[in-house]
Design a protein around this nucleic acid. Sequence first.
DNA 1: AATGAATGAGGTTTCATTCAT
DNA 2: GATGAATGAAACCTCATTCAT
Lengths: 187, 187, 187, 187
Amino acid sequence: MNKDAAATRLLLVGAARRRFAFDGYRATTVRDIAADAGVNVALINRYFVSKEGLFRACLDRAAGGLQPDIRNLDRVLDDLVDHVVSSPTDEDSMQLLLLVRSTGDDRVDVIRRETLRHHAERLTAAAVPDRAGSPDDALLVRAQIALSVVLGMTMMRTATRVEPLASADEALLRAPLRAALHALLVL
Amino acid sequence: MNKDAAATRLLLVGAARRRFAFDGYRATTVRDIAADAGVNVALINRYFVSKEGLFRACLDRAAGGLQPDIRNLDRVLDDLVDHVVSSPTDEDSMQLLLLVRSTGDDRVDVIRRETLRHHAERLTAAAVPDRAGSPDDALLVRAQIALSVVLGMTMMRTATRVEPLASADEALLRAPLRAALHALLVL
Amino acid sequence: MNKDAAATRLLLVGAARRRFAFDGYRATTVRDIAADAGVNVALINRYFVSKEGLFRACLDRAAGGLQPDIRNLDRVLDDLVDHVVSSPTDEDSMQLLLLVRSTGDDRVDVIRRETLRHHAERLTAAAVPDRAGSPDDALLVRAQIALSVVLGMTMMRTATRVEPLASADEALLRAPLRAALHALLVL
Amino acid sequence: MNKDAAATRLLLVGAARRRFAFDGYRATTVRDIAADAGVNVALINRYFVSKEGLFRACLDRAAGGLQPDIRNLDRVLDDLVDHVVSSPTDEDSMQLLLLVRSTGDDRVDVIRRETLRHHAERLTAAAVPDRAGSPDDALLVRAQIALSVVLGMTMMRTATRVEPLASADEALLRAPLRAALHALLVL
DNA sequence: AATGAATGAGGTTTCATTCAT
DNA sequence: GATGAATGAAACCTCATTCAT
């Protein structure tokens, strides 16, 4: 019995992120999460009020990752590629998946969409620094397509687990992925 | 009160495809599907044994779509692009989404993965006709990344509905999407 | 297995009225009610949406009873007395108890209070027919005190079961009860 | 952080009486009581073993109130009337309510019934002093009906809050209430 | 003595499925 | 063949209580 509340919360959020990202919101039960975290189910409600509250907490942390705040487009592309190639193993790789997992609650949906839009705006800022303030739709669409690539691949590799993509070596992934992103973001 | 069994089955599969693709497997209830189809709930079990059986029937039909059986790579790329731009409105646009919706049943998962792999092989065949019989992993990976692009965008447009991507005009989508696919499949 | 929906609803409402009146809203579980009615628990939600919906349905029926729509005050007093003396055995005797059982839901509380007030107004109309339209507070208070007597005794006899009151013979109850009501309503 | 155990107990019993009387036993949570008392929840179990133990402690104190140990019937009637008119505000007014709040535990029920019966006997002693030792059922029933009046009105005024009764002025209540009690207890 | 963390039992509700007409 | 009724399993959540500090 661990008597550290903060640690327990982290345990729960960690377990929840994995389950939500991998199995989807509806398919994961709070008992699954609690079992993974090794704590009692009731603590989910105690600390996060509801299953949805726990999901929201996962989103909050997820919003932190995938932050390309550098002005160097090359570095940004590298980050995106890194994000994908590390996907089945890395902790952060599930953050993007969380953003497409629906809970059925409208307020959560709004947060999800805003977060995704925010990421896209950051990408456009990196791609066309001089027009950073007011990106037009054409640019945003390109950025969001780029995010779609990352998202689609992460799904295929982690959730759907299609071979050979899922267990493909880093060497096989980097070149084509970078080519695709390059075609989208470098004008 | 439709006395034509075959027609009822079609009605159910149609409604189920929409629901499964859009809301996910767990989030859609058989009552939703039956209501959409305008038939009695019990008929789902009568005709498809179980909810999972209905999903399997949707997969069977889904496997039929997205068949690039032409040897012309240009046409194939056009088909993929068409698939995406028609996504929120078109009936067939949800077929790919079905392939990433998990049911929790392992046997269904196998079918899903095989279908996706099959699609990838067809894509490689179109890309490199002379090596059609035995594609190497590098080619398959490229094809699956291409599918990931289509898949990721379809999710963003239909399920997640991120703007401006979701309601972007065809004119804004075609060029970047085609560029990305070109970078992936044309060597 | 009874396949008559209307009959099942009646069964449930009947069992619920007894339980709610006797044990109180919070103390009665939907499983208790379903067991008493001899039907499956899920039917409560099917037919009445929620436990609270079932309670509301009980209130609706309860509102029908205890209707002294006769202009003869003597008859009205007799009715009230009858209501009390029949209390532990009679079906209708629990209707007044329902009106003081709180659910915690504010909307239900409003209904309860309105129903009680409505009963009081009817009583005043019987007591002072010529001022039926606009009873003043003094009259309403007297009527509500009379209702309190009926209510208090019903509680004591059915829920609390204090002896000798609970099993007191009709002969012992009528005279004092009627005297009290007379003192309240006959000016 | 009160270091005085006795004071903490009083705080808890006070808060519990209010909650139990007003909301009922099942509807009040031990956390509510602890919060009202401003102490930690675990102390309820520490000092009173269980929620039921706390209720029992409330009953013990409640038994002390409403003691018409005077031989003057007029004074006794005044006390009863006072008890009712002071009901929404006064601390002691909830003591009678406690006596009709069931916990579901049979042993507690016995205590409750005995306490109520005891009160009735005291009333008969005041009404007919010469037969104080062995009251017959007819007298006890009259006394218990009188208690029912007080109880019913207290419920209507505090728990159900029916208007105009709940906020009726003392002047409007005294006369009819005394008339009813007089009809019951003065032979 | 007091507190916050943790637990387990039990409550309501949802939902896929089966039964009977 | 089709329908509404009925069922049981399981999900989320609440809450009294116990544990460890």
